[in-house]
Nucleic acid binder design. Structure first.
Length: 555
RNA sequence: GCGGGUGUAGUGUAGCGGUUAGCACAGGGGCUUCCCAAGCCUCUAACCCGGGUUCAAAUCCCGGCACCCGCACCA
């Protein structure tokens, strides 16, 4: 089924549509309608079932708005700002820093004026036509806002939910009783000021993501999850060396195609999640990033891609974020985002430590001097330059002291592996994989699994008269009190109502007919086969519950 | 952001200077012998927005916005 068919259905039946349409719309923003919001929640609930219930990760919720410091530390403010220059003759766009780097490989951005000067000095022209280039324009891919009155505090709408987890590493470490590994997950919105949002839910400026940050002892990267047979799972892998293979995850690990066990496990978990919600498993693959496309924080990354009529689209990224983020936050905040590891045999050692000079540090860091001191004194003594909050700590601001110590603990920065899911793209590809045309009749059916379907059961009186409607209303009420999401419809012919229900993916339809009034039985119709069975109305809740639960739990 | 294309009821479309803006499906009401978008009657409902040209604009021109296809971008 084509993407256009999904968009048409989505708009007509209340799944999703462009936001702000009465004010001409705004690119990159979409509403979920009454049906879509239910489907989206069901996808998220399934995700939570797997990550929170089964894998025992901790669900948290942190703010959408992040102060500048957080994103300075994470590297986003720097990496997310591009300078774009255009050819004044042919209009070609370039990233200014990339152009300079081609002539000066060791170029690092310092200031805007310096960048402009370098372009002039190096005589950089349009690569295509040799025309003059315009003054570079700043483009920040994060949306900013100000907090509080007056000038306000510069803040950004978060580009990922991950930072909200990293910065609270210590409370989560306590929650898990100081034992690694553990996972913390968050479902929420992320924001990016995309240059050109496209194709409905594929590239949004405000989007839904579900992320897990899993913290490991760097010397022991292994996730012993719920699924003991995970390494037997077969998946299709595209390596960054160009191999395209289908392998057991265990074999991929053995062969070194996947380097870390947790990445293999989470690839398998992603596969099973997508399979469970109804993505066509023949159209799932995992593609390893090439070194040059890795994010600034990442050393290795596998994208899960799903094939749609728009080609293979990235729906999940499983990234080795290593120690990058915690290290950055340690350096910028001075917080001790470490784990303590007890040594098996304590060592008597001579320890060299930095000892900060208060006066000097005060003169460099002002109010921040205590944090600077704490950071300085937490470091191993090396010859490296010491940087705190971007400023170098000069050698005359500290001394090195030496003393004997019994070392019982060693401290380390945990290692992070991150599976990150784009909910909107998953929903869009699921709709495309689920929509089909019924043979013979030619009308559309959305083959959603019962636990993903917006409504679990539709209730129809064969005709809205002769007491059939009252009986149907009674059954509807009973099903609602049994906690089913019920769709009641009595308008139009019975065939029309089945068709309407099929189109938004309702898996079961209960019809009340004249026999119901005599013996209390109803017909239960299954969507994809259209087969009906007759059963007592009292048996409905148990029967439906079993059918729905089975779909959620077969993973 | 660039180039090309497209914007007409809820959806899909016809109309291409003068139409009561047509059709189909969907939706509301009614009738009906009612279990897979059945039939009949009836009703509701649209020219993306803003300028301009013209006696007259859905139609031609310009600008905006949105969508589609390429290019670029996508941490």
């Amino acid at each position: 089924m084509q993407y256009q068919d999904v968009v048409e259905l989505a708009k007509r039946r209340g799944i999703f549509w462009p936001s702000f349409e009465i004010y001409n719309g705004l690119s990159g923003f979409y509403d979920y309608g009454p049906v879509g919001a239910l489907i989206k929640d069901n996808i998220i609930n399934t995700w939570k079932y797997i990550f929170v219930e089964l894998e025992q990760m901790a669900l948290i919720d942190s703010p959408n708005i992040n102060p500048e410091e957080v994103l300075d530390a994470s590297g986003h403010t720097k990496v997310f700002t591009d300078y774009i220059t255009y050819c004044e003759r042919c209009g070609e766009a370039y990233r200014a820093d990339e152009l300079i780097k081609k002539k000066m490989p060791d170029y690092e951005f310092t200031t805007y004026d310096d960048m402009v000067k370098k372009i002039e000095e190096l005589g950089i022209k349009c690569e295509k036509c040799g025309g003059n280039l315009s003054r570079p324009e700043k483009f920040n891919l994060m949306l900013s806002t100000k907090i509080g009155p007056g000038k306000g505090k510069t803040s950004y709408l978060r580009p990922e939910t991950a930072q909200g987890i990293f910065i609270n590493f210590l409370p989560y470490l306590r929650y898990f009783r100081e034992k690694l590994p553990f996972g913390v997950v968050q479902v929420g919105k992320g924001f990016r000021n995309e240059i050109s949002p496209r194709q409905s839910l594929l590239r949004l400026r405000e989007f839904n993501m579900a992320e897990a940050e899993v913290f490991f002892d760097p010397e022991y990267l292994e996730w012993k999850g719920f699924f003991q047979d995970m390494m037997d799972q077969r998946v299709r892998l595209l390596t960054n060396r160009g191999e395209d293979v289908e392998l057991r995850l265990g074999d991929a690990l053995k062969k070194g195609i996947i380097k870390q066990q947790p990445i293999a496990y989470f690839i398998g978990l992603t596969f099973r999640f997508l399979k469970n919600i109804g993505i066509d498993t023949e159209r799932i693959r995992f593609r390893q990033h090439h070194p040059e496309e890795l994010a600034h924080y990442s050393k290795d990354c596998w994208d899960c891609e799903v094939e749609t009529s728009n080609g293979w689209i990235e729906v999940t990224g499983i990234a080795d974020r290593n120690q990058y983020d915690l290290k950055q936050h340690i350096e910028h905040s001075g917080a001790d985002l470490y784990i303590l590891k007890k040594l098996e045999t304590p060592k008597n050692i001579k320890v060299k430590r930095f000892k900060g000079n208060e006066e000097k540090l005060k003169s460099i860091f002002g109010n921040e001097w205590e944090r600077a001191k704490k950071y300085l004194e937490s470091l191993e003594v090396t010859n490296n330059q010491i940087i705190f909050q971007g400023k170098r700590i000069p050698e005359d601001a500290y001394s090195i002291i030496e003393y004997d110590e019994k070392e019982e603990y060693t401290k380390e920065i945990p290692w992070v592996i991150e599976p990150s899911f784009g909910i909107d793209r998953i929903l869009l590809s699921l709709l495309e994989h689920s929509l089909y045309t019924r043979e013979n009749t030619g009308y559309k059916v959305l083959r959603l699994k019962p636990h993903i379907s917006p409504y679990k059961v539709a209730v129809f009186p064969l005709m809205p008269k002769d007491g059939l409607d009252k009986e149907a209303r009674d059954i509807e009420r009973i099903l609602r009190t049994e906690n089913f999401n019920v769709y009641y419809d009595e308008s139009g012919s019975i065939g029309k109502r089945y068709a309407r229900a099929d189109e938004i993916g309702i898996p079961y339809c209960v019809t009340i007919d004249y026999q119901t009034l005599k013996d209390g039985t109803v017909t239960l119709r299954e969507r994809d086969t259209t087969q009906q069975e007759r059963l007592g109305k009292d048996e409905l809740p148990e029967k439906l519950r079993r059918l729905i639960l089975k779909c959620l739990t077969s993973i």
